[in-house]
């Protein structure tokens, strides 16, 4: 279970998170939606302990990552599979080596076993055959898929995906959606997924949370969100340019 309690964070003079609270249950897929620049990636960095909040608490299975020691955070991180918005592959290693990296650095598995796992995960994201390429020669979507494969090699219990389907073609996007749903059904992983893609949000989410003005302004099941009375959420999911969100800027 992941819980953010009244998190405040100021970055570069602006208040990015302003009393954000959110609770994600075990085995649940929570989709966070919100406009570009609303602080979704910043929220992710708080959950992974990369950023410390100015105030507030962040609990991952009862461990407060804002105050935990280095070792405690490492224990939490071992159970996370994180996809960064940019993919964040190491650019001096082949795709193979990138995907194998957590296995090589954190386990003592024999090379043959590592090979097998890497091939399996690359196949999941349809990148078999691209293993020998360097990240610089991949397309944006391929980088994202390689990052996805890397996030899966240690069989994480919690997935944090920052825009997993942006930059992918519709078929590939759906494959990733199915992958996320599969992981939840079969392995009961907890997922937090950031996306702009409302179609994918409605498809994979157990609940959807809307981030606006530094806090979560509405949480609900896809049906509840579709039927929302909140004008801001309404405007966002309909993609209207006229409305309270536009005027506020």
């Amino acid at each position: 279970m992941i819980e953010l309690i009244d998190v405040h964070k100021e970055l570069g003079g602006t208040k990015v998170l302003d009393g954000l609270s959110l609770k994600v249950d075990r085995g649940e897929t929570m989709v966070i939606i919100g406009r570009s620049g609303s602080g979704k990636s910043v929220t992710f960095k708080h959950i992974t302990g990369l950023l410390k909040p100015d105030s507030g608490r962040i609990l991952v299975d009862g461990v407060d990552v804002t105050t935990a020691s280095g070792n405690e955070i490492d224990l939490v991180r071992r159970r996370l599979g994180v996809l960064f918005q940019s993919g964040a592959l190491l650019n001096w290693m082949t795709v193979d080596a990138n995907v194998a990296l957590p296995l090589r650095e954190l386990t003592n598995l024999p090379e043959a076993e590592i090979r097998r796992i890497v091939d399996e995960k690359l196949a999941l994201v349809e990148l078999n055959g691209a293993g020998h390429l360097m990240p610089a020669s991949l397309s944006g979507g391929m980088k994202k898929r390689a990052g996805l494969a890397r996030s899966l090699v240690l069989e994480p219990e919690i997935l944090l995906y920052d825009e997993p389907t942006s930059g992918l073609d519709p078929i590939m996007a759906n494959r990733i959606n199915e992958l996320i749903i599969d992981m939840q059904r079969k392995l009961n992983v907890t997922s937090i997924v950031v996306t702009h893609d409302m179609e994918s949000a409605f498809m994979i989410a157990d609940r959807i949370a809307m981030l606006f003005g530094g806090r979560i302004i509405e949480v609900g099941t896809p049906l509840e969100i579709q039927a929302t009375k909140n004008v801001i959420v309404r405007q966002f999911i309909d993609g209207k340019t006229q409305g309270p969100v536009g005027e506020e800027q």
């Binding site: 960095k45 992974t48 990369l50 955070i73 490492d74 991180r77 071992r78 996370l80 994180v82 960064f84 918005q85 940019s86 964040a88 592959l89 190491l90 650019n91 001096w92 990296l101 957590p102 650095e105 954190l106």
Partner: peptide, 19 residues
């Protein structure tokens, strides 16, 4: 090299993988 890794979130990724 390390600076590029830092600003392109690669260092963050390493930290999150607890490497």
């Amino acid at each position: 090299e390390l600076g590029t890794m830092k600003v392109s979130e690669e260092i963050d990724a390493l930290e999150v993988m607890s490497i």
